[in-house]
Structure formats: structure tokens, C-alpha cells
Design a protein around this nucleic acid. Structure first.
Lengths: 303, 303
DNA sequence: TAAAAAACTATTATCGATAAAAAACAATTT
DNA sequence: AAATTGTTTTTTATCGATAATAGTTTTTTA
């Protein structure tokens, strides 16, 4: 049956909220709580009941008075606040990254269900959703096949990425200079420069910065298909950064420099310069990805 | 539980196969039957059992002898050979096309399950898969939202389509002249010319030809992300052709002429000519689609 | 003794049940 | 009367059960 992770998570957030208040404070109407916790009033009421049971809150007419501060042990532990969906997501990622799964291999849903401690239906649902990214494929009335992240996949991904990126870059540099994206770009530029100066110790932070930079470029296009593709890319890069630890610092230095050149081109408003900078960066990205594929545990055999 | 549509479908195909044979023929080993019917031997054995029960086949040692021809009534009726997945797919399409669903509207899975006569889980699974196309979106712990096929959707779709089509066209015209795609293109060209000459009566056949033509162009790119996008487009065009019946003949004549110009450009091998022809066609496609959106029952309210 | 069939095991598709959460409705209280 | 709480109904998330199908191993037979 449905897990009550929503309740537990919201309960924890509620405790944290109470810790910031004073004894004797009124928590306010249920509707407001529901709004601030982004859950339904039904769940708010369950939380209030639990808070009253625990003696943290007392009801006085319509007021919900804080009577004592919650203790650390009263919070639900993290592992209990994960929905089945999230558990599967996490475990499946771990499973693929461990290399338990090679290209072309059949995925046994029943077995995964046993390994992950969830029902086969839950696995099925997850795989259905995950197939969206193109790594796995359902064979009707038969098992799932892990297509894996091989050379072909990378090439095709990079091809489309380049198409999208060039277009997005073009649209970006044509945006009005008053548009808020330019301010965001300035901030990102400063962060790049800062990271470059501290690269010796912080080179691992580039991954996140990279993600934010490209998302900003894409945002200029306002296209759900491109955003959607970007979600696939994110997963791939998540993998990719986990595999290829060799020369990470050096690679990131190059990437930061390319980003800075790219940013400068965008700011110049010169379309051709933007395209050139974007193309150069895409070339590097592709080369890095292809070279790292041989390191990937999931790509050892052909697909 | 699982429906036995695979059995029924294969049984029907088997009956059809027997009708082409002679009384006294041996059907051959189970393995061969499984292969030719593209099902497992387990199911072949169920079919053989049923054929023996029905007196159509008799076993003599290892031989499976045809003893009489099957009658028309012995075939399973079509409606019984549809899997739940297919039933839902068909009914969901009918449901959206009837206009029971407006942009921004919440989809009630339970209600659909009742209407379609299937279980809620089956609906859930279908919606999960269908969400892939971007028309609907799941709101966790809440219902699904029908985003609808509005102007924005069409514009974004056409933008990406144009990017992909131009790239594919470029790659296509650079293929070696000995490549089999050129033969296929010749066939398609003749079919276009033929259709144009019989347009008065056969204008409805264009939809299918259009689909085949663009798929051929895309095939040059060998890109799973582009193919994937193409699947979305197919659905959209399926809708689109159902809505916009006005001026269908005239629109199709224009499209055929554009296709023929496009084909000529491809054959010429002149890259610029290809791009120009493709761009012109894309412009028309976009205009047609946008003009037809106002006619769509699903796009009446904003999303 | 190798091909074919039989028997067995494993896996998928699908349903129906149920706790959790959301939503809708009804009854209060300021 | 508007805001708030109490109650009921509806819907989602998740599981577990089972028929259909696929896949594997053992037995039979030509």
C-alpha cells in the first residue's frame, strides 16, 4: 500500500519549523500550514494529531499552541522518508553504476524487485518511466534490455546536443540586453572565474556549474523537447562524471576556459562568434565523452 | 491476470496457415512453428492442443496431420485479440479526439479505468508510457494533467522538427549514390507522381505517404533521439489529420509538389538546394499545423 | 544420438485490494 | 458571512496474487 513518506517528510519539516518558534506560539490555521508545507489539509491534520499525541502542541479552542521544543530523536530518520519510487531510482542507479549490467544484457525485473526489496510492479513502473531516456528498451512479453551507454549512444547524443546547443546559443545572443538572463550569465561568469582560481581544491564543483551554465543557455529556447532531451543528458553526464576520474582537474580547466570564451562570445552579441565558441566546446565535450566510454563498466560489450 | 491475446492471435494466424495447406499435411516440429509465428514453444503447444481438441489436427506419432479445413467461425473475433495495452491506447485516443479532454484539465485515472473497462493500474501504466510524448504530465500524489496540443506545443514541435529535418536532409544528400536509400526514394517519387495524378479520389492516402517519406529522410541520420522525436510527431500528425479536414485536398496537392521539389533537390546532391526545399516544406507544414490548431477540440482553452 | 516433445521453472501482464493522500462537502465558530 | 475545522468521498501509490507466456532442463523417440 501507499507509503506515508509525505506525512513523515512534512512532519519533519514541521518539527524544524516549530524549533524556530517560541513556546506558546500559535501554529495558525490548517489551511496555511497545508500551503506552506505544500501538502493537503488531510495530511496536515494527521501531523497535528501526531504533534498533539507527542505533547509538542496543545489545542486551545482554535489555537494550536507550541508547548515544548521537539527533540532530535523525534524526527523521522532519513531512510524512512524515501518513497518507493525514490528507493528504486537510487538503487537502480547504484546497480547500473556498479556495472552489474552490461550493454545488451536482459534485465530481470523479478530479480531486481528481490534485490531492492520492493514489489515487481514497482520495478515495472520505474523501468517504464526510465525507458524514456533510451538506455533500456522493453521487449513486449519478454524482459527489458539494457542498451547501455556505448559509442553509438554517445555519438547520437552529442549530435543532437550540438544541434540544440547551437540553436540555443544563437537565440540566447539575440535576446534583449535588458532580459534577466544576462544578469544570470554575469553571475555564472564570476563563478567560473572564481572556480578557476581555486581549481586545485575545488575542481569537483565544476560538474554542477556546467549543468547550470548549459541549462541557462537552453532556457533561451523555451522548448519542452529540448528541455526533455536535456534531462537525458543530465543522467548521462551524471554517469560520465562518475566514470572518468582520470585527468579530471585538467579536463575541467579546459572546460572552464571554453565556457568563459563562450560567455564572452554570447555577451558580444556576435552570432558567428557564439557559434564558433559553442562548436569548439561541443567538440571537446564529445571527445571527452567518447574517450571515457571505454572506462564505463556498462559499455564493455557491444550493443 | 494476463490476457491470452498472443495465443488467440497466433491461433488465428495458424488457422490461416492451415487453410493454405492440404488435408494430410504435416505441420512440422513445434520449434519451427514457434519460429514462424514468432511466439514461444509453450504457446505453440497450447495452440496445437486447441487444434487437436477442435479436430482440425490429429497427432500420429510425431506428425501433426491436418484433418480438415478450419471454418470461418472458428477464428477468434478481432475484438478478442486486442491486449489491454492496445485497448487502452485505442480508447484513450478516441477519448482525447472526442474532445473529452481540454488543455489544462486533470485526468482522472480511476474514471478512465471505469470508462474503458480496465483496471486502474493498467491506466496508470499507459499514462506513464504516454507521458513520454509530452501531452500529459504526472503531478506526483495528484492527478495527471492534460497539457494539450496548443500553439506553444506546435511551435516547439515545429522548431525541433525543422532542426532535425534540415540536418537529416543534409546527411541524406551526401549519401553514396549506391546506397539503397536512393532506390527507395525513386519508388516514393513515383508514388507521389501517381498520387498527384489520382488526387481527386485518393487524396486521403497522402498522410501515409508523407509519413513514409519523412521516415526515409530521417533514416539517414541513424539517431535514436531523432527517431524518438519522430514517434511523437507521428502521434501529433495523426491528431492533426483527423481535425483539419478543411481544404485537405488542396493542402495535400501543395505538399506533394513540395515533396517532389524536395526529392529533386536531394537527388541533385546540391546541399543548398536540399536545405532550401526542406525549409520551404517545413514552413508550409508549420503554417498548416498552426492554422488547424484552432480547430482542435483539445486546444480550446489555454494551458 | 540428435532432434523433438514433455515437463518444469521463471518471468511478464494484469487485476483487485488497501493505506495514504487529496479533494469535496458539511458544520462550526469567530 | 468569511474563515476555520470536522467529515466523507475520491484518487493515488503500492503490494501481492495469478493466468499467460517465455525460457530451460529432462525425457522420449525415430
Amino acid at each position: 500500500m501507499k507509503t506515508n513518506t509525505i506525512f513523515k517528510r512534512a512532519y519533519n519539516r514541521c518539527l524544524a519549523g516549530i524549533a524556530e518558534r517560541r513556546i506558546g506560539d500559535d501554529l495558525g490555521p490548517e489551511t496555511a500550514l497545508a500551503q506552506s508545507l505544500a501538502i493537503s489539509r488531510t495530511t496536515v491534520r494527521s501531523i497535528l494529531d501526531a504533534l498533539i499525541d507527542a505533547g509538542i502542541v496543545t489545542v486551545a479552542g482554535r489555537q494550536k499552541i507550541v508547548t515544548r521544543y521537539p527533540e532530535e530523536v523525534e524526527y523521522f530518520p532519513d531512510f524512512q522518508t524515501e518513497s518507493v519510487e525514490e528507493i528504486i531510482e537510487r538503487k537502480f542507479m547504484e546497480w547500473t553504476l556498479r556495472g552489474d549490467c552490461r550493454a545488451g544484457q536482459h534485465i530481470n525485473g523479478l530479480d531486481l524487485a528481490r534485490q531492492f526489496g520492493v514489489s515487481p510492479s514497482a520495478i515495472r513502473e520505474y523501468l517504464n518511466r526510465f525507458s524514456h531516456y533510451g538506455f533500456i528498451q522493453r521487449m513486449p512479453n519478454s524482459s527489458w534490455v539494457f542498451l547501455g551507454f556505448n559509442n553509438d549512444f554517445a555519438e547520437e547524443l552529442c549530435d543532437v546536443r550540438e544541434l540544440f546547443e547551437l540553436r540555443a546559443a544563437q537565440q540566447y545572443c539575440e535576446l534583449d540586453k535588458a532580459h534577466p538572463v544576462w544578469k544570470k550569465l554575469d553571475i555564472l561568469e564570476r563563478q567560473h572565474i572564481l572556480l578557476l582560481s581555486e581549481i586545485e581544491t575545488r575542481f569537483c564543483d565544476f560538474s554542477e556549474l556546467d549543468e547550470r551554465f548549459h541549462r541557462l543557455i537552453y532556457s533561451a529556447s523555451h522548448n519542452r523537447f529540448m528541455d526533455n532531451f536535456h534531462a537525458t543528458m543530465r543522467i548521462v553526464f551524471h554517469y560520465h562524471y562518475l566514470w572518468n576520474k582520470a585527468d579530471e582537474k585538467e579536463r575541467n580547466i579546459v572546460a572552464i576556459q571554453e565556457h568563459l570564451a563562450y560567455i564572452a562570445a554570447l555577451k558580444s552579441g556576435d552570432r558567428e562568434a557564439c557559434l564558433t565558441a559553442a562548436r569548439a566546446h561541443m567538440r571537446t565535450v564529445r571527445a571527452t565523452m567518447l574517450s571515457s566510454i571505454t572506462l564505463s563498466p556498462t559499455a564493455l560489450t557491444g550493443g
